[in-house]
Design a protein around this nucleic acid. Structure first.
Lengths: 208, 208
DNA sequence: CCGCATCCTCATGGATACTG
DNA sequence: CAGTATCCATGAGGATGCGG
C-alpha cells in the first residue's frame, strides 16, 4: 500500500493492515494459527499470489510470524502479540456491521469458524452466566461450542465435552440473536431456531 | 471495492469502509462536519476525483449525508448516526497504532485536529479528573483544549474559556503521554514538554 | 498434493488540467 | 469553490507452471 504520508494513528494503521485481504487474513489467524492451505480454504476468493504477497507484507511489518509446524519443512502462520491485538479493531468492525449482516448471506460464502470471532464480539459481556456453562452451536455441519468464562464468551470447535444445551439455527439468526437484533422468543415464534437441553442457559446467554 | 463474497461482518464492513481513504474521510467528519474544501485540507495527499468518488460511495452506503450549510447552495458532509458509530473501530485502530506513532512524524504531514480523536482514544478513561477541568494543548500553532467530562475526555479547538493548565509539546510527545508510553516526569526530564498553570491536573490526566 | 512464483488482463488509484 | 475529465501507473484477479 502506498503511504498516506500522514502522522495520524489511523493512517499509519491502515498502511499496515489497510490493504485488501489483510484484515481478513488476520481474522483467520485470530480463529487459529493456520497453514497456507488452511488460509486458502478460510479466505474464499483470494488469489494465491495475493495471499503469498500479503503474508510476506504482514510478516515484514511484524503482524504475523512463520513458524515450523509438525515435522518436515511445514510452516504455520501465527499472529505476533501485536498482531493479536487487532482483535479489538476487528471485533469493533464486526459490531458495526450488524445492519449489513441482518440482510442474510445473499449468496455469500460462509465458514462456521467465522462465528468464533463474531459471536463473542456481539454478545453483551455484562451478562452473567455460570462460568464453564457450555452451549453447542449447530450451524450447517461443523459443530461449535460456546463457553462462558469469567471474562466473557469463547466460541470454538466442539471438543466433545458435555453440553448444557444446543442451539440449531442459520448463521444469520445466530448473529441476530447475539447482536440483540432478534429476541429468542421472536426467533422461536418464527421457527428459525431449535433449542435442546437447558433452555434457561440459552436465554441467559442471549439476553437482549 | 470489489465484493469479498463472504458472509462475515468484517468482510461486509470492509466492503463499505475498506476502500483506500474511506476511513480517513470518516475520521475528518468525526472531528467535525466539513465542506469539500475542508476535507481536501484535512486529507493531505488525496486526489480531488477520489474524494468526490468516495463521498458518493459513502453517501450511497449510508455512512455520510450531504446537507445544505449556511446560505446558497453550499453543502456540508456529515456522518449519519451509523457512520458516527465508526468512532469505535477508528479509536481501536488508533490505540493499535501506538508502536507506529512513537517513531515520530518522519516527514509525514500533521494536522492538530487529528489529536481531537487520538488523545481521547489513548487516554485511560478510568482516570478520575474533576469534570470540566480544562487543559490547553499547544502543538505547533492551532490551540486545542482537553476537557474532562463524566464519561471521558473531549478534545477540540480552544473556545477561549479559562484553562486550568497548558501543555506545550510536539505531537509525538503528546501522543506518547496519552498512550502511557512516556511518563510526564520522563518528558520533563527530557525537556520535551512545557507545563503552565495547575500541574496536578496535568498529572491526573496523563496518569500512566 | 502443498507452497508458492510468473504471466497476462483488466479494474482501480493518482496527478493534473479543466469547467460551471 | 466544488467538483469532472483525462491520462498514466499500479495493483487485483485468474490461470498456469513448477520444485519439493
Amino acid at each position: 500500500m502506498r503511504s498516506y504520508g500522514q502522522y495520524c494513528g489511523l493512517a499509519r494503521s491502515l498502511e499496515v493492515v489497510g490493504d485488501r485481504w489483510n484484515l481478513l487474513i488476520v481474522r483467520q489467524l485470530l480463529i487459529a494459527p493456520a497453514r497456507y492451505r488452511d488460509l486458502i480454504d478460510g479466505l474464499p476468493g483470494i488469489a494465491t499470489n495475493l495471499l503469498a504477497d500479503r503474508l510476506r507484507d504482514l510478516e515484514r511489518s511484524g503482524v504475523i510470524e512463520r513458524r515450523p509446524a509438525g515435522q518436515g519443512s511445514v510452516v504455520e502462520y501465527v499472529l505476533t502479540p501485536w498482531g493479536a491485538e487487532l482483535r479489538g479493531p476487528i471485533e469493533s468492525l464486526i459490531r458495526w456491521s450488524t445492519p449489513l449482516m441482518v440482510r442474510g448471506p445473499e449468496g455469500d460464502s460462509f465458514r462456521p469458524g467465522w462465528l468464533a470471532l463474531a459471536v463473542p464480539a456481539l454478545l453483551d459481556t455484562r451478562v452473567e452466566v455460570r462460568p464453564s456453562a457450555t452451549v453447542g452451536l449447530e450451524i450447517g455441519e461443523e459443530p461449535l461450542q460456546l463457553r462462558a468464562t469469567r471474562s466473557g464468551f469463547e466460541v470454538g470447535p466442539h471438543d466433545g465435552r458435555d453440553l448444557d444445551a444446543t442451539v440449531r439455527a442459520e448463521p444469520a439468526y445466530v448473529l441476530g440473536l447475539a447482536a440483540g437484533a432478534l429476541t429468542l422468543s421472536d426467533a422461536r415464534a418464527l421457527g428459525v431456531v431449535e433449542i435442546d437441553g437447558d433452555e434457561s442457559i440459552v436465554r441467559a446467554v442471549f439476553a437482549a
